[in-house]
Design a protein around this nucleic acid. Structure first.
Lengths: 246, 246
DNA sequence: GATCCGCGTTGACCCAGGTCAGCGCGTGCG
DNA sequence: CGCACGCGCTGACCTGGGTCAACGCGGATC
């Protein structure tokens, strides 16, 4: 993202009702958009590079991603970026700042995206009146804790393992469990992946070519196809054996 | 901890009222021990090496640590231990399993310890009746997310930075912010510290001696004294300059 | 079409920290 | 008392991946 920070920008904001939304009743938004919180939601579109929010800004909302992709990150003391995760449709943005008056991380669209805004006061109201909503929210936080714990472990693995796990997760999230054989588009750059996995971009690149040489993968720029899920899972477990072919 | 798992053991369990407890009203237990949840808590003592719970066991409680020290960890697929954190008096154990039917991590006492058990059903009741309790619990989860995010960043730092940050945190938690000049006891082994920070025990040991040589620290086995907080904070920021003295 | 710029890729080099091995010390136990 | 064992410490060695530099490619701009 640019060196001179672009302003936090949100485009085409419009009020929203969840009735008839393609995400259905499992969406956290649908669970909010009832009772006294009804009618307080809004939907916003963002272009690639637009910030949904920045670390330090007053945090007054939670967002359900309904399209596109986001990168969540913090700026480290030394000026680097620690990517916390990539956030895809159905996921919630801002949950790490729910208990704080200011955002604890930044969120930027890495592809044209849409989000549904859930204002904090509506959330607070709904928490009081709906045990179901309460539990969903708590479950989301619990899941985030789990995710970060797994991420912590990933940080102790080899470069091959990190990338393999990352690709498998990515594929599972976008296509359902373990689907392979069709090319998908990775919305994030090698740089982003590196800052997420704790690797230099060069290393990410090298691992990609090594995985390709081993036949587990086929990739060109942002297009990627898992050709051998079993092999990739094997690599995720034990690292890459150096021989080629297969 | 031993290769053959010791049974999960809890000793000297007794019913508990928070009235008159030295921890005071700020304790999460005191906030629970009112209304319909009253009288459902209990206090337990553990010896060094006793497990409070193990990953996979049915999780039916939250615990407030009231004395001693714990290590929270998960066993990684390759059989290693990933230490998630060290848990000291006032902290809560089991919050990462609150939204799961089974514990997602294990907790073992690394020193003689005491905990107050908060049964899940009492928590559920109290959540329904007390917005204050609810918010405290959510705040705890939010804090855990923050902690893990910081830990993630720590995993990208040099060995010196990791150890320096660890020692500063440890000191802050046990003695109030930035206190130095008096020896304290580290209840965890070099091995534990390594498994927490993602370093080999040898590296932890080497860094300790290097920090000692540089005058920032004085340590012998489990006894440790921060002699120069500023220097340690400087190291935490930028890593250790190689020259000695100071 | 010419130019530019950001991204991905590759090669060469280097070093922080992992691994292995040895040793000393304190503690518990027969 | 002697022994064994676990833990911490240190040295020697090795390697995974970071760093630096160069280059190719594709998309945007004029």
């Amino acid at each position: 993202m640019p060196a001179v920070p672009t302003p936090t920008r949100r485009r085409r904001t419009e009020p929203l009702r969840c009735t008839g939304c393609e995400r259905g009743v499992d969406c956290l938004g649908a669970a909010l958009d009832e009772g006294s919180a009804a009618g307080r939601m809004s939907r916003t579109g963002l272009e690639r590079g637009d910030h949904l929010y920045r670390m330090g800004e007053p945090s007054d909302s939670l967002y359900v991603v309904s399209g596109g992709a986001f990168k969540s990150y913090v700026v480290t003391p030394d000026g680097g970026e620690q990517v916390l995760g990539f956030v895809l449709p159905g996921d919630v943005l801002g949950i790490d700042s729910l208990t704080h008056p200011h955002f604890q991380s930044s969120a930027v669209a890495i592809a044209p995206a849409r989000v549904c805004r859930m204002p904090a006061e509506a959330i607070r109201l709904r928490i009081g009146e709906s045990p179901d909503f309460r539990e969903r929210l708590t479950a989301r936080m619990g899941r985030e804790i789990q995710r970060l714990q797994r991420l912590l472990h990933l940080g102790r693995c080899t470069a091959e393992q990190r990338v393999a796990v990352f690709l498998l997760n990515q594929s599972a999230q976008t296509e359902g469990v373990g689907f392979a054989g069709r090319a998908q588009r990775l919305p994030m750059s090698r740089r982003d992946i590196g800052q997420f996995l704790g690797l230099a971009t060069e290393t990410v690149s090298r691992v990609f070519t090594r995985l390709q040489d081993s036949g587990a993968l086929r990739c060109r720029r942002t297009s990627i196809e898992i050709r051998n899920v079993e092999r990739l899972m094997e690599i995720a477990r034990v690292g890459l054996p150096l021989r080629r072919g297969g």
